[in-house]
């Protein structure tokens, strides 16, 4: 009767056992995740197999109908656009940042200032950066055409020409991610042990050889992390497309996330059923990326 469980400590309110206290501390997070992550996850699956009325309320069970809709050419184009957008916003931003970080390794004056300068885009939100680019891309009075004009090149309709709009949005995205990539890779370089670099230098390695044989291989964890994180980030991109092109012209910049937005929310559309089916596709693609991340990381750890 008087035997207290050994886990009850003096000083904690006596009514809590250790595990009771633990669950109490976890409770706020658990409630938030249950209500706003796990329940909506199930709900997305539910909505994706139900029709909906004009106001978006789910109606009858329609099975795989929304998924069958996706076999249309329209959704194929959305997936292709998503792939191109991801490829051309991730690869240049990672390679460009690697190039700059390697050059910053050359022992020159002013490296700290330069490094901070290259990291500055990190301070911009997607919305502010996109608005700056919208001004730069303005066909009539924007700087982009101004520069072309002074070189004697004709004006380009950066955001309204179907073949230019996607590269233009990718370029803006590369700029947005550049600062973050520089920060990550600089931190990676700083973590390389100076002895290794010094030993290589004493052996006569410098410049390109030092970079390709020592620095880049030692940066491979950060490079891999950046590719995965940037890919996940690119797949979720929304603000720049909403601000710069609204998915146009002629769907040229409608990525998966933008397509979800259009079906569910744009122009008073409330097609939550099809939008949810596309959301499930997004979820599967993202889980695939995460699986790749863990798969490769696992191998790397084993390799060591």
């Amino acid at each position: 009767m008087t035997s207290t469980p050994p886990t009850v400590r003096r000083g904690t309110p006596a009514r809590f056992t250790e595990s009771g206290l633990g669950w109490l501390l976890l409770l706020p997070s658990v409630v938030v995740f249950a209500l706003f992550v796990f329940w909506p996850l199930g709900r997305t699956l539910y909505l994706s197999v139900h029709g909906n009325d004009l106001f978006g309320a789910p109606s009858v069970f329609v099975g795989a109908e929304h998924y069958r809709e996706m076999l249309s050419a329209g959704f194929g184009k959305v997936l292709a656009t998503t792939g191109l957008f991801t490829l051309f916003s991730v690869v240049p931003a990672v390679l460009g940042a690697l190039f700059v970080v390697l050059l910053l390794e050359a022992r020159i004056r002013g490296v700290r200032v330069l490094r901070t300068a290259f990291a500055l885009p990190f301070a911009f939100s997607v919305a502010t950066a996109s608005v700056v680019f919208a001004v730069i891309y303005n066909p009539a009075i924007g700087v982009a055409n101004g520069v072309l004009g002074s070189l004697g090149i004709d004006r380009v309709n950066w955001l309204t020409d179907p073949s230019i709009a996607l590269p233009a949005v990718c370029a803006a995205t590369v700029w947005m991610n550049f600062g973050y990539n520089v920060l990550v890779l600089s931190a990676g370089v700083a973590a390389i042990s100076p002895e290794v670099v010094e030993a290589a230098r004493l052996d006569g390695a410098s410049g390109w050889r030092l970079a390709s044989r020592i620095t880049v291989p030692l940066l491979s964890p950060q490079l891999f992390f950046l590719v995965v994180v940037s890919t996940i980030h690119a797949l979720q991109s929304f603000g720049q497309i909403h601000i710069l092109t609204k998915g146009g012209p002629d769907q040229a910049t409608t990525t998966l996330v933008y397509s979800i937005y259009e079906k569910a929310f744009a122009f008073g559309s409330s097609d939550f059923g099809s939008a949810s089916a596309q959301a499930v596709v997004l979820l599967v693609v993202m889980l695939g990326c995460t699986a790749v991340q863990f798969g490769v990381l696992e191998r790397r750890v084993h390799y060591r």
């Binding site: 706003f36 796990f38 909506p40 709900r43 997305t44 979800i260 939550f272 949810s276 997004l282 993202m286």
Partner: peptide, 20 residues
């Protein structure tokens, strides 16, 4: 389960969240 929430893109669950 906490870590699993990191793998769920917000955009994939935004519709039910909005409705709720």
């Amino acid at each position: 389960l906490f870590l699993a929430t990191l793998m769920v893109p917000w955009e994939a669950i935004i519709i039910p969240n909005y409705l709720a």
